[in-house]
Write a protein that binds this DNA or RNA. Structure first.
Length: 598
DNA sequence: GCCGTTTTCGGCCCGACTGTTTTCAGTCG
């Protein structure tokens, strides 16, 4: 079994153990192991053969055995038995908000619930409300969760989440009680998809802020409203959380709620190593339980919640920024995009964090479409829009003839377009230089949709897969590699063909494609369309270290899609890329030289 | 189940909110 399959099984084991009410740390060990395996960069077979699997952090003796067994035999008795002991429909119950392993176990043991359907019936019959520890509200919430589970479980593409967050953030910042406001969470970290929105506000008077937040336009439902935290469900199903903290806690809270969870765990461990305790409240000297017991015996018995557990205690650092928190733990500032526990803490400790690419580093983009194929804007309109964005150059790469569904250009139309582009450049109408390219289909057998004579007339050539998605991984990988070996090819478009939340990537061995790109001196595109963000950020760090050159391309089919390059920059940052790794961080003259046009 | 030059056993990040309770468990992030 391959690595991805084993990762899935380890994750599945974690879920099953959760339902069985196993030790939470054991469950975490399986999830950690899955993640450790997933980010293993070497070939799994080689690591196993070399006996080095146990050296991977998070993979101990038991997991070495299980992973090896799965790798060699495709089967694992432990997993088979575990799976058989849990009814099939049970795992889906974990998706219902408010239901965790303990409640699910109770529902199963007392009412025989083992699927969404039987749970719904039990709620409707009133049996759930009668259970100890349950009640009418719980039953109602479960029913609501069942009714909305598709919308509630849905993730959202980063761009959409960003667009939803902007007006909320602006609204918060306009309130007079608000000193500072930021969005945190996976949105701030630039994940390709976002589960919910997290807003952080610094203020001494939370009340009116909570009122505004829970009653703003677009709120369908208020799911929580407290003194420091409120949650709402927006009309499109997106959940938004707001936390209001005193100004002196703002950056601790911002760091905490930016995550990722794994990054936070590492940061807290690091704090503990220094005799400190890090939380959203601040950074404090580690204490024993004196404080808590004192509070119980004390005279003023406030409700324990809503009280800062650290009381009047002074944090060891007065954080005026997140950088101050990192500094207190002997780390350089780590940009949010890197906070995934993928080596950023070690790099920050050594002072080896990359200087990440920014929007301002981009001087132009390749791979865009016009009305000649399936774009919605003309050549002139696209050029004007690119110039308005401050670009020095704009690459036009309309589809080739095999993409007939997208009105792909044949040889004749392509020649006419090239001529038109040359004439436009010569006319001096725009300062933005247009590059004449093509997005040439990689045919099923790996040959290209145009012959060499035609390819030679182009300024550059993007090659992409647009059909026969169901090839085997082996065939698809060979198909793409064959295209990359072609001398007139400049770059590979959207490597996996995925459409986020819509279409799975086709089967392809990404490391092998990266090897081929490196071996042949080709670029791999970071397709910046919010639906694609392909090649995935998880592969860029390692690939760029090996010298792979990236091109950030909006794949714009309309003028207002050119700005998608920003999503590409964010994704590139997440992949640890600097401007040196990216072709379109070079000025026009340098790009022309690279393309052999200088 | 993982991990460790303070430990091979006993820890494992930390706090808020809800709904159910009468002092707290479960869930969530």
């Amino acid at each position: 079994m391959d690595k991805a399959g084993i990762v899935d099984i380890l994750e599945s084991i974690a879920e099953l153990l959760e339902l069985k009410g196993e030790n939470p740390f054991k469950i975490r060990a399986y999830s950690n192991g899955a993640r450790a395996l997933e980010s293993l960069e070497k070939d799994l077979g080689e690591v196993i053969a070399a006996g080095e699997l146990g050296e991977v952090k998070g993979i101990g003796k038991a997991l070495v055995d299980k992973i090896t067994t799965l790798y060699e035999t495709d089967e694992l008795e432990f997993y088979t038995k575990l799976k058989a002991s849990v009814p099939e429909g049970m795992i889906a119950l974990l998706d219902i908000p408010g239901l965790g392993p303990k409640k699910i176990k109770k529902l199963h043991d007392t009412l025989g619930v083992e699927s969404i359907e039987s749970l719904q019936a039990a709620c409707e019959s009133g049996k759930v409300a009668e259970l100890d520890g349950f009640g009418k509200k719980t039953a109602d919430n479960i029913l609501r969760g069942i009714a909305n589970r598709e919308a509630y479980a849905a993730r959202h593409r980063w761009w959409d989440a960003h667009e939803a967050a902007v007006p909320i953030l602006e609204g918060l910042r306009k309130l007079k009680e608000v000193e500072q406001a930021e969005a945190g969470g996976s949105l701030r970290r630039g994940m390709e998809t976002v589960g919910d929105l997290d807003f952080l506000v610094a203020s001494t008077t939370p009340g009116p802020i909570m009122d505004w937040f829970t009653s703003q336009e677009g709120v369908r439902e208020v799911t929580a409203k407290g003194e420091t935290k409120s949650s709402v469900r927006l009309d499109d199903g997106l959940q938004a959380d707001l936390r209001v903290v005193p100004p002196e806690q703002f950056f601790f809270a911002l760091h905490h709620f930016t995550g990722s969870k794994d990054h936070n765990v590492r940061m807290r461990q690091r704090a503990l190593e220094r005799g400190l305790s890090l939380s959203e409240w601040g950074l404090f000297k580690t204490q024993n339980d004196e404080r808590r017991t004192q509070k119980k015996d004390g005279e003023e018995e406030k409700k324990p919640r809503q009280v800062n557990p650290h009381g009047d205690e002074k944090p060891v650092v007065d954080a005026k920024s997140e950088a101050d928190i990192f500094k207190a733990l002997d780390l350089r500032y780590i940009p949010p995009e890197l906070r995934e526990d993928r080596g950023e803490i070690e790099a920050a400790e050594q002072g080896e964090l990359p200087e990440l690419v920014t929007d301002e580093d981009i001087f132009g983009v390749f791979h865009n479409h016009t009305t000649a194929s399936d774009g919605r804007a003309t050549l002139d309109e696209m050029t004007q829009a690119a110039q308005d964005l401050g670009f020095e150059y704009l690459g036009i790469a309309d589809h080739s003839k095999a993409s007939f569904q997208a009105s792909g250009l044949d040889e004749e139309r392509l020649a006419a377009q090239i001529e038109k582009i040359r004439a436009l450049n010569d006319s001096g109408k725009f300062t933005c230089r247009v590059l004449a390219g093509s997005e040439v289909d990689i045919l099923k057998d790996g040959t290209l949709d145009f012959d060499d004579g035609v390819l030679k007339t182009l300024d550059y050539c993007v090659v992409s897969v647009h059909n026969a998605f169901s090839l085997s991984e082996d065939d698809m990988t060979k198909r793409i590699i064959k295209a990359l070996e072609h001398e007139h090819v400049t770059m590979l478009g959207h490597l996996t063909g995925r459409l986020l939340l819509q279409r799975e990537p086709y089967a392809v061995n990404i490391p092998k494609v990266i090897d081929a790109a490196l071996a042949n001196g080709k670029i791999i595109e970071l397709n910046a369309s919010p639906w694609r963000l392909d090649m995935d950020w998880r592969f860029w760090k390692k690939a760029a270290e090996r010298g792979l050159l990236c091109a950030i391309n909006p794949d714009a089919h309309a003028t207002d899609q050119l700005k998608y390059y920003r999503a590409g920059v964010l994704t590139a940052r997440k992949g640890w890329l600097t401007k040196d790794n990216i072709l379109n961080c070079r000025k026009l003259a340098s790009v022309l030289e690279y393309l052999g046009l200088g």
